[in-house]
Design a protein around this nucleic acid. Sequence first.
DNA 1: GTGGTCTAGACCACC
DNA 2: GTGGTCTAGACCACC
Lengths: 125, 125, 125, 125
Amino acid sequence: MEFDPTRPIYLQIMEEVKKRAVRGDYSVGEQLPSVRDMASQMGVNPNTMSRAYQELEREGFLHTRRGEGSFLTHETERVEQERTALAQAACTAFIAQLRDLAFDAARTSRLLRQVEEEVNEDGDR
Amino acid sequence: MEFDPTRPIYLQIMEEVKKRAVRGDYSVGEQLPSVRDMASQMGVNPNTMSRAYQELEREGFLHTRRGEGSFLTHETERVEQERTALAQAACTAFIAQLRDLAFDAARTSRLLRQVEEEVNEDGDR
Amino acid sequence: MEFDPTRPIYLQIMEEVKKRAVRGDYSVGEQLPSVRDMASQMGVNPNTMSRAYQELEREGFLHTRRGEGSFLTHETERVEQERTALAQAACTAFIAQLRDLAFDAARTSRLLRQVEEEVNEDGDR
Amino acid sequence: MEFDPTRPIYLQIMEEVKKRAVRGDYSVGEQLPSVRDMASQMGVNPNTMSRAYQELEREGFLHTRRGEGSFLTHETERVEQERTALAQAACTAFIAQLRDLAFDAARTSRLLRQVEEEVNEDGDR
DNA sequence: GTGGTCTAGACCACC
DNA sequence: GTGGTCTAGACCACC
């Protein structure tokens, strides 16, 4: 994986794990790859991965059972909450981009209506 | 400037110049920094900058007068066209993110309405 | 190959490749020598040859498949179009020469009829 | 002046002087620039220029009067003869080019008729 | 000063 | 093997 060198890697790993859970790569309650496996998978130091797992545990996103491994939270709502947070972040970034382009409100409205149509068509599939 | 190492630098420079023009950093018809200046400003080789300028000229985004320098197109429409293209690209990326998060149509609609409101508030400022 | 030092080499290479295709040295759809081979064949730097090939691709005269090589266009019409263009260029240069010699219209007419006869004899061969 | 390095320079000078006379840069009977002046004008060695003048004299195209200088022939016909010869040479080269392009007789006829029209329009000016 | 071209040589991606 | 990109540095034309 590629990491943005200007931000702490463990934070970027946390986001990645959350995205994977939200995407459904891991199901609620499911065992996650071990710290070592995940570290080699993402090409980072196991210590860094361990830190990421610890922080995720503090946030209640996973729990670790000594000697057994780490497991994604059982609470569906917790994952849903992350989905919303990630969507909101994407949304904030998107608005910032439009603002930076000085894209006016009228054109934005038109663009968003287009987006909505596209999404609805997708939903129908 | 930081460049994504997986994509040609000259393409990223082209996008950056377009963004700057769209943001209004450069006005239509205005002389742009020379190839050498822009190259040192962005920390790339003058040849790479030259390539970027040449491609932008081919796209009609700027024109070069030998021995004089490069100038942003006089056509406001050309810049507007780029504004639209950049906004659409941002939009497409945004939708892809929501899709990747398995964000359903109903929630997306709500989110988009929220975006629209925020942008309108901006417009009112 | 000898190049006219007053004109960009890559442009002269483009013309040479077109002439070769028009002469039938390369057939439509056929693989062309690699950038490196053609460069050493013509005694130029591979970068210069690469530029020539890229411009020819932009003109639709050849297409490149990454990792495989470059191929003359499949469209016979494209090559025919070049034949016409080259003939017209030769023609324009010829007229300019006659004009430069202050060759009057009557004598030019006679000369042109002579050209036509010679070409027709050629056709009969 | 630029010379083709594959052919004797004095021959190329001779052709140049003939072209100038045919173009009317020099009139019949008129004094030509001295060997020295012409040599520096064309950027060649005076010996080379001298050789060219001698050959032109042998061909009866100019005559030299010791201590006075060189003069273009008085005979208008001699210049006309050169005009024809140069036109014929241009013509031969033109036909060779069309042949090299495998430009067929029908297309050549069409092209030549176009040329003739252009020349006639020119003549009307 | 300006941009345009060319070479030499490296490194990469795709095959 | 193939082409694509980038750098470094030279030289040139036009102003």
